[in-house]
Write a protein that binds this DNA or RNA. Sequence first.
DNA 1: CGGGATCCGGCTTGATACTG
DNA 2: CAGTATCAAGCCGGATCCCG
Lengths: 133, 133
Amino acid sequence: MTTPQEQNLPFDVFSKACPSRGTLEHVTGRWGSLTLGALYEGSFRFNELRRRVDGVSEKMLSQTLQALERDGLVHRDAQPTNPPRVDYELTPLGREVAGRLLALIHCVEGRMDDVLDARHRYDQARASSAPGL
Amino acid sequence: MTTPQEQNLPFDVFSKACPSRGTLEHVTGRWGSLTLGALYEGSFRFNELRRRVDGVSEKMLSQTLQALERDGLVHRDAQPTNPPRVDYELTPLGREVAGRLLALIHCVEGRMDDVLDARHRYDQARASSAPGL
DNA sequence: CGGGATCCGGCTTGATACTG
DNA sequence: CAGTATCAAGCCGGATCCCG
């Protein structure tokens, strides 16, 4: 049972200073994860993505895409036409990461019944122990 | 190429109202992901976890653990001794989720060199196009 | 030790409006 | 269409004090 820090890996996300933590946050962040998940299906334009990722604002989507592009996970293809047309797609690296991410997402989705049950039990237990609030 | 919404899955994280989105955020959140990752190694006490998850405050760790416990991913074992001793460990469901999560984390860690390269290229390209700032 | 309660600053976020 | 700029609100997260 060694701590990750003791292993001296080149990049250890458990360490506060490690740059991999920032990238992990881009990937797993609220909009980052959904954006990568959506892009796994193919190439999309800005507003197409906005519709797929239900609830994201223009600003956050733009910001998210820039972060993912900077990390080399997303490729941005802008054609200087009028009106402008910009397509986003995953890079090979992005595909790899998004694949793992989707495995996680599908795992959570598939076990949601268990999660909902657990929540219910948790809330029941707390409600009965604090009756007179 | 159907949108997730069109498939009428029982739980679709891409939909704004779906409860799975909340759970996904607990799992992938800044501290949630690191906490689950740390607990994958075994059972830990509160302050042991704090040391493993570098940078987390008492409040956030406590908050994170409660959310994960409520979702049925973490089991909390509190012994009413003095001083109190509380151990945290993954449930079977938590283990499953944490496994996928770790696959993602290790994937990102392992490709950090590529990410760093991409960032450097991205910053170079932007710096040269905006010379006089 | 293992937290809960409170206060508070600041970064994140979301509308809205504007640009090319 | 594809964003950027601006601004206000709100939530996140840290510090502190407290209790069992």
